[in-house]
Amino acid sequence: MSVRHAMLALLSEGSSYGLHLREEFEARTGDVWPLNVGQVYTTLQRLERDGLVASEGDEDGPGAQKMFRITQDGARELDTWLRTPPDLSSPPRDELVMKVLIALRVPGASVSEVIQAHRRYLVELMQQWTRIKEDADPADLSLGLAVDAELFRLDAVVRWLDAADARIKRVTADAAPADTPAAATTPAPPHTSVIESLPRMPLTTNRKVRTRR
């Protein structure tokens, strides 16, 4: 979310002074979205230049004393933005997928331990979000919804890890030599690598791997 659309959203509720917008913005998003409050006045200036908001009052002031209102173009822009799906085509967990795929190929790496390290980290994060939800005022909808979104996102990653773990375990079990019936009931010692028994798989994702940032 941009400061730009946050301003349009606040102004859609009625005209407001720059200073008040800044305070509102801080109060509503400070907890949940990491947006820069310092950008409020410059953003308002640009919105005015683009004809999406209009102002009156102290012409040359910093914006704090000006009264802003949303224009028709601004309202249209806000509506379009609300309906435009964000870009989800590049999942944020690329790096995690890559690490698990690489772990499959690194001799001596225990994939299940690699997976568990990530699983634990994610679940610990989820515990922290859940504590925030537990302590939150149930009437604070924006906090509750934002925390839920975060929890569902992390949960999806954990489920991917669980599925990967199970898939790898099945493939390794199938690949285990048939003359060791004990292998079916006796779990491998925790530090044994599963790599040896895995067919070498080409790292087909190489092309798609992006270095983020």
């Binding site: 679940v123 979000w129 859940t130 949960d155």
Partner: peptide, 9 residues
């Protein structure tokens, strides 16, 4: 088996 529920613990 649900991480969201487990995260209450």
């Amino acid at each position: 088996h649900d991480a969201q529920l487990a995260s209450w613990a």
